[in-house]
Design a protein around this nucleic acid. Structure first.
Lengths: 238, 238
DNA sequence: CCGCTAAATGAATGCCGTTCATTTATTAGA
DNA sequence: TCTAATAAATGAACGGCATTCATTTAGCGG
């Protein structure tokens, strides 16, 4: 629980320990037993996971690869997390802190929601494998996520939303945001009907004419749905 | 490559082939080599996967378990699907055919969308592990899915939607539907803030007052968002 | 000083998707 | 009608995965 941020500053401890034979590429082993300075902590694990994700994607995020990244044996990770799910949780909470909630309290409700929703979608579009985790995640375990909900709730209440509709309104928006995050990852030709085009004339024509609309398709659809939700939900204010 | 559709009609061939000694629990071995009557086909694999999913959930859907369910060696499956992803695809396309599109052509656009969206959400709420697959799935590979899009597109066009907005409107609705399907699976106490309740007074109060609203929380939020989308998108008709 | 606990290693486990060589049956073509 | 190609099954094997366990070592509290 300490989360001592200091030990994450420099190189991992092993780098100072090794290098006795110059020219060794840094693959030197650490002996068994507890090291004098702790090598791992949750912040370091989070940082290592993020680096691994950005370099190799979520397929590359394995406990073995994460251990290697941190220059540690895989089993050492289990002194700090109970399972891989906990690593994903750390990453999720870290990312949620990046979502822009600054509009609440400074801008109109409509504009604050716009900023928040676009930011939220953009952050998780790069991290869709986390979405199934988030969906089942009790907020208790994710303090930053809880903080985000607090700010957003306060904004909704200040805008005149009746208390009992705040959570369901946020959930509706969030559902749209998560679904739209997936949409960003879809391949461009996802709607190419190929050989069955003749049997689906209406859909095929609609897809064709969509091609002329400026902007990324996922952005166009998100804009459309978000504005519909904002005006529809906004009408329910007291 | 044949994909002879006829062999998909009846029960999987295995049911007719086995059980030579009645009372035998079906653990009988088959010799190596091609059997006279084909044991596997895509319809049988789909049915086996669905049975497995309903009994053991998606964690229980492994290639080994599926093979056992179909009384076949695991490697035999790879004569019919290239990878496990293909099995999920078969399941997805099967489920999409269960989505109710009957409102399009018979009811108002609003009512047709309502029926379609609720049905779509309910079907996939039980199958959320498919959602990441659907998101990346080119429709070419899923004929039933393509058929659904055709019916829905036709309904939107008939309701007066400009052609170039049909696809993005459907995508926006679908994003909301997929996100909401996840929401159904969330545990009841997902918003219990626990020990941090004092630092999140607005959110905690909102969660408390939500408890008084009748209906399942996921349903309330879905209703709210869906009606907002219907009125917001409906305003864009020509 | 001594024992407990924390944090590391390294070996081992069981499951998973997938591949490959092999066997056998069907089918197409000369 | 023989024959070669192909299709569909078995069974053994593979590498990778998350996770567990015994062991070693270091620091801390009584």
């Amino acid at each position: 629980m300490l989360e001592t941020t200091n030990e994450r500053a420099g190189m991992p401890a092993v780098s100072a320990t090794q290098g006795r034979s110059p020219g060794n590429a840094g693959t030197q082993r650490r002996k068994a037993g507890r090291p004098s300075a702790a090598v791992l902590d949750k912040a370091g694990i989070t940082a290592g996971a993020l680096k691994l994700i950005s370099r190799k994607g979520y397929d590359g995020l394995t406990m073995a690869a994460l251990a290697k990244q941190l220059e540690v044996a895989p089993s050492a990770l289990y002194n700090h997390v109970a399972a891989k799910r906990d690593v994903l949780l750390l990453v999720e909470d870290h990312l949620t802190a990046l979502v822009d909630v600054s509009g609440f309290g400074t801008a109109s409700w409509e504009q604050a929601v716009r900023t928040w929703a676009w930011s939220y979608r953009n952050v998780f579009a790069e991290h869709t494998p986390l979405i199934p985790v988030i969906a089942v995640l009790p907020v208790t375990d994710a303090p930053q996520t809880l903080a985000m909900y607090e700010t957003v709730s306060k904004g909704f209440l200040a805008a005149g939303f009746p208390q009992e509709r705040v959570v369901s309104s946020i959930v509706a928006l969030e559902s749209f945001i998560f679904g739209s995050a997936y949409d960003v990852t879809a391949p461009e030709d996802i709607f190419e009907s190929g050989s069955m085009a003749e049997s689906t004339p209406n859909f095929t024509a609609a897809v064709r004419s969509s091609a002329g609309v400026p902007g990324r398709p996922a952005d166009v659809a998100f804009e459309l749905g978000l504005e519909a939700l904002i005006s529809g939900l906004g009408a329910l204010r007291g």
